[in-house]
Design a protein around this nucleic acid. Sequence first.
DNA 1: GCCCAGGCGTCCC
DNA 2: GGGACGCATGGG
Length: 279
Amino acid sequence: MLDEVNETIMYLDMCDLDQIAESGQCFRWMPCREGGYLVHDGADQAYIKQIGTVLVVRYAGNTLAKWFRYLDAGTDYRHILESIPDDDKYLRAAADRGCGLRILRADLWETMVSFIISQNNNIPRIKASIYALCRKLGKPRRSLLGEVGKDLGKDFYFTFPTPADMADLDALQGLGLGYRDKYLAELARDVMLGRFRPDKLQDMSTDEAHRYLKSVRGIGDKVANCILLFGLGRHDAFPVDTWMKKIIDREYGGKFPLERYSGTAGVIQQYMFYAERTR
DNA sequence: GCCCAGGCGTCCC
DNA sequence: GGGACGCATGGG
């Protein structure tokens, strides 16, 4: 039954929804008046509310496994936190502040588009553009709560547009995308025509996938790393944006000791980014 | 008017 | 391979 609404509880260690919502990796989390978030990813929606150490997850049909994966519920973040050496006072404090952060495993296409939009842009504007993009080119679907945020309308949310929905440059006007509109239309067309194959990324090494992503116009070093980290679950990818540059200059004399965190550098990066943004 | 934002493409050396 | 510069757009 496609429209069936289910609800379950999930025990998840080291998880704080408010921290994740403010961590710059998800742009379609809508806080609800009664608490919790309406979370959108690709074509799907869930309502997730945290009560202490328990997550209440409301979801449609048989998508529970998807949300389990989305929340990266199989990863032991306590272990990562404890692996941070005591001699790095800055990082210990940053990780302590953001100890409820997790690396979301978001929809790959949405992650590619979102982080192309993110370049030389700020988070409120990124959210506004993505919101407008979904509203204009996504498809309306019945909402789990009978409402979405403040002004999307009472009963519907919008799916994230597909490559086919986004291949027309004219349709991307008026969304505040700026010069990035051309990158998106070109990528959407290439995906539609099979000239760029996101599905191939899964089987590549992180280095290979990084190179392949960078072959897309509009995807450079940093955006490629964000896609690897948030869209492909590669916790070894280490995005460095202007905030991270500031931290690395101030705390590490311009050179971060990446070799200490092989395999989890991306997670560590998220603690640093969050700490800097909220200090 | 400036500078900045989860940067990148292009040009020039 | 590295360093300027332009790029759309809105907020401070």
